[in-house]
Amino acid sequence: MRFTKQKRHRKAVRFFTSCFGFREPFKILCDGTFVHHLIANGIAPADTALTNILGAPVKIFTTRCVVAELKSLGSSYSDSVDAARSLMVARCDHEKRKSAIACITEVIGEKNTEHFFVATQDAELRKKFQQIPGVPLVYALRNALFLERPSAFQQESAKAAEEERSRMTELELKMLKLKKKKVANDEARDSSETEEQILETLIPRTDVKMTRIDKTDKAQFKRKRAKGPNPLSCKKKKKQENASEKMRSQGRFQEGDGDNSARNRKRKRSRKNKTSTES
């Protein structure tokens, strides 16, 4: 049972933090009935008990009108008055004292911009705040504290606020239209520039004089000519022999032709002929 209660409390806290922007430390606005119930049932310290049910640190507030109302109830509420005076004071700006219900209603307002958790034992006041979006309610039963579930009206208002946030505002719509118009103009300008470039390439220009092209700038082509045989596949040429060597090899060398060669040759004489002549 205790686990299911904690789970329900965590779910309610998550709803108000995600949908209405509540942040830690949570601010608790107490009226006189809630303060008196804490003192009567011995729920102390109050900040620890509230921290246990909300799962986050808290700051407890009250108003000057609530303290004045408790003080007017007599000496039986003296402990409650002392406990209320020890709490932080929320600004109410009332010159004349009002009732606690009227004062807390004005502090909460229509949208609860200060993000207060309202702690009260007044059933009528809780029903009234159930019709205001973003007002979580805390109440006590004997010595236990409870966080009330979000009402159907609060859940519907949270859904409507989420849908409204998802829609585009008028300013965003104007900015989107301007951006689309700018993109269309840029595309039209780019297309016109491309058309002009294409026309410039297709239509020859008459204002440009033709300059003479040098030979180096011309494309040089080699004419095809008949090629000789492959030197690697041909036999080597023999050297031409001299006419004298050719005639000697054929045996046609004559005496008259060989005088020059005979002169050049030395005559070899034998030794026997030399000795016979000497004797």
Rank of each mutant, 00 (worst) to 15 (best):
F153I: 15
Q254E: 08
V138S: 07
F153T: 15
Q240A: 11
R167D: 01
K236H: 03
G258S: 09
Q197I: 15
K209W: 03
K266N: 00
L141P: 02
F146N: 09
A184W: 05
T275C: 02
A161T: 08
L147D: 03
R269M: 11
A152D: 14
E170K: 14
L232M: 13
L171K: 14
D217N: 06
D217K: 11
A152F: 05
R189H: 04
V138R: 01
V135N: 06
K266I: 13
R165E: 08
K272D: 06
R265T: 11
I203R: 08
K215Q: 07
R271A: 14
K182F: 08
S157Y: 00
T169K: 07
S192C: 08
L178Y: 00
R271M: 12
G251D: 02
E164C: 08
K222I: 01
K235W: 01
K239R: 00
L141W: 05
E156Y: 08
R225I: 06
L232V: 15
K246N: 07
Q155C: 10
I198N: 09
Q155I: 13
L173C: 03
L145M: 07
E193M: 10
E255W: 02
E200W: 09
G134W: 05
K274W: 10
K218Q: 01
K274F: 10
R189Y: 01
K272F: 00
L145E: 03
D257H: 03
R149Y: 08
M247W: 06
A184F: 04
E172M: 09
M247A: 15
E163H: 08
E172W: 09
F146A: 08
K235S: 10
K274A: 14
S279N: 02
K268Q: 09
P133W: 03
K237V: 06
P229L: 09
E245L: 11
E241I: 14
A160W: 06
D217R: 13
P229C: 03
A158M: 09
D207N: 10
S276Y: 01
F146D: 06
G256P: 04
E187L: 15
S151T: 14
E200R: 12
A262T: 09
I203E: 04
K236Y: 01
N273A: 10
R252K: 13
T216S: 14
E245R: 12
N242L: 10
M247V: 15
Q155M: 11
R165Y: 00
S249W: 05
T216P: 00
S191D: 13
N143T: 10
P150H: 02
F153V: 15
A160L: 15
N264E: 04
N264Y: 05
N264I: 13
R252F: 02
K274P: 00
K182D: 04
V183P: 00
F221P: 03
K246Q: 06
A160C: 10
Q254P: 04
R225C: 05
K235V: 06
S166N: 08
I213L: 10
A219S: 00
L137I: 14
L137R: 05
N242W: 04
D214Y: 04
